[in-house]
Write a protein that binds this DNA or RNA. Structure first.
Lengths: 209, 209
DNA sequence: TTAAACTTGTACCTTTTGATACAAGTGGCC
DNA sequence: GGCCACTTGTATCAAAAGGTACAAGTTTAA
């Protein structure tokens, strides 16, 4: 199955006309690990849909970062989606975590198709809804949860995503994910280890419960 | 001009068929101050569009609240919009701040029309985009700014919204808006007063710069 | 006009989070 | 092996934010 066929299947795109459009205008691209897909404050020219691989989306300050979400196969970064509906700069960074295959659609077609084709409309609308709810939950967590809770939440969701109780990440990177400093992460993890909730290894964290 | 005509004008709804649909299915309602429009964890049955008045949308924990945004005339609460596309519970609370006139559309029409009528499609899409970006900015502020900054930001935006340098609000209410406690608000405000940035009055805060 | 409810100011203390500094451990590679 | 870059553990300190307690001011309404 070609990448385009995967896209059609994944997004339930049955309209032949739309398939033709996508084949004509879409660009298939495989990019290596650690490639920027969009950068904060830069203009967006393409809507990128991830076919395989993994893209990390985050915001940053001068000295801190905070994870927004990961884009998994057959998803798109909503920020670049919203940018396609009105010419604007990206509010986020997005970078590949592993080698990633994308299909890129020039922005001007994205909103056009959304009114012409039911399946495309569903895709864009669903992307918005799901991402909005996601962000809302993150917002609530950020507002009401303490860092140690957000940290263990992060570890649990990583474990889930990778289907493994071992998360391979350094304390420094972890600090960036949840928006704090390395020392705070080390301290919290050590406490969780004393409580037999995690087991610490070099650049690895094992979830015990 | 009737409320419906205001709606058509505000959302640029020119399609006669859509106007007919809205007149047929929409319900005009004026609700008093402090009425719940949606409640967290309750199901949503209507999409409410504010014609006049003001609706406050927030999230809450056991003991804390945090403001999400206000819905102003000719806007809709995006959360109820997203709920109309898939049957789900509200993640937020929404309550009128002053007497408010709404037009309510039963949820099942909202997504239907979005594919049938260009102007409705634009309305729903724009609502999503703007709200998403809004929330994203709030998220960033929450992640990177200290409370005193978020507090003064809140005051400035309130001053802007009401076109007045005097904000009528108690410290307790202010604490709820930014997600902290009353004592913290009092302390911060007092400091800003010493710095000649605000002037404090009873249930009133005057912005000096 | 007086009590009750709400509002504000503030002192004191605790917890949470962050900053600085340094020691020690790990892995890769020449 | 030995060097280097990176990672982890931790102690100490500082700042930010929150909790408790109480006094005093303001409004409302009986």
């Amino acid at each position: 199955m070609t990448e385009f066929e995967q896209l059609f299947k994944g997004l339930n795109i049955v309209e032949e006309k739309l398939q033709e459009h996508i084949l004509k205008e879409g660009v298939l691209q495989t990019v290596p690990k650690d490639t920027f897909i969009v950068e904060q404050d830069k203009y967006i020219k393409w809507l990128a849909i991830v076919i395989s691989g993994k893209v990390r989306v985050w915001q940053e300050n001068e000295d801190r970062q905070i994870l927004l979400y990961y884009v998994n196969p057959i998803q798109t970064c909503v920020l670049s989606l919203s940018a396609t509906f009105r010419d604007c700069k990206s509010l986020v960074h997005a970078k590949t975590e592993i080698e990633t295959t994308l299909i890129k659609i020039p922005v001007r077609f994205v909103s056009e198709w959304s009114f012409m084709f039911k399946s495309w409309n569903t895709f864009t609308t669903n992307s918005f809804i799901i991402s909005y709810e996601d962000l809302l939950l993150s917002y609530k967590d950020l507002a009401f949860k303490k860092i140690n809770e957000r940290l263990i939440d992060y570890l649990r969701s990583e474990a889930n995503r990778n289907n493994s109780s071992i998360i391979e990440i350094s304390h420094q990177q972890l600090a960036k994910e949840v928006g704090t400093t390395r020392e705070v992460v080390s301290k919290i993890l050590k406490q969780y280890e004393l409580d037999h909730i995690v087991q610490l290894h070099f650049k690895k964290i094992e979830l015990l419960s």
